[in-house]
């Protein structure tokens, strides 16, 4: 029960402070994995992947998945509901004074200042996920050889993927499916 309440509290905090939609929740989830050790960075990468290739908003899918991994089905439902409750309350209060809110100088200023910062938050989380996917700190620290720092197969796939994503604008599921097949065939 304590764990469930803590889970709900953590997700309510994300719902209240993550401004900028789904991707803005990723740094908070990363922070959660670091602080509470409910799941690893690799688990987080898997959960983002599954959330991206299933229907529904990314942020909601991730909340359900993280909640499930922490406390089963009930955890999944609790985390998702907790994530949306703060916005529900905020939006209902704003709706009553919509026209005033729309052109409020404070809100406009806050949002203008927050936007570039949110990019910084996300860069930091994505970099960590990147490092855990294509680098191997542990064996680098052990051997001290630069050659051991990178997982070369993964690095190569990353460069190839980046190239193809920029060149062809296919749906992300296409790239995820290709990477899955490469991962199995070349035994990542």
């Amino acid at each position: 029960m304590m764990l469930l309440l803590q889970l709900a509290f953590e997700f309510a905090k994300i719902g209240l402070f993550a401004i900028g939609g789904g991707p803005a929740t990723i740094p908070f989830l990363y922070d959660m994995s670091e602080r509470l050790a409910w799941f690893s960075i690799d688990d987080l990468g898997n959960m983002i992947a599954i959330s991206q290739c299933t229907p529904g908003p990314l942020g909601i899918n991730m909340a359900t998945y993280v909640g499930y991994s922490v406390h089963g089905i009930v955890g999944g439902i609790f985390a998702t509901v907790a994530l949306v409750v703060p916005s529900l309350i905020i939006i209902i209060s704003i709706s009553k004074v919509l026209d005033k809110f729309k052109n409020n100088v404070y809100i406009l200023k806050i949002f203008a200042l927050l936007r570039p910062c949110v990019v910084g938050f996300i860069v930091s989380a994505v970099l960590t996920i990147f490092l855990s996917s294509v680098c191997d700190h542990a064996s680098f620290l052990e051997s001290g050889k630069l050659n051991d720092l990178f997982l070369w197969k993964e690095m190569l796939l990353f460069i190839g993927m980046t190239f193809f994503i920029r060149k062809y604008k296919h749906h992300q599921i296409v790239y995820i499916a290709i990477a899955m097949i490469i991962g199995i065939v070349f035994q990542f």
Partner: peptide, 22 residues
């Protein structure tokens, strides 16, 4: 293995979203 591959693709996709958001 499948997920190790998928995570790399997710990194590449997130990398593009970050550039776009930036």
């Amino acid at each position: 293995s499948a997920f190790a591959g998928i995570r790399v693709a997710v990194c590449a996709l997130l990398f593009q979203s970050v550039l776009r958001l930036g």
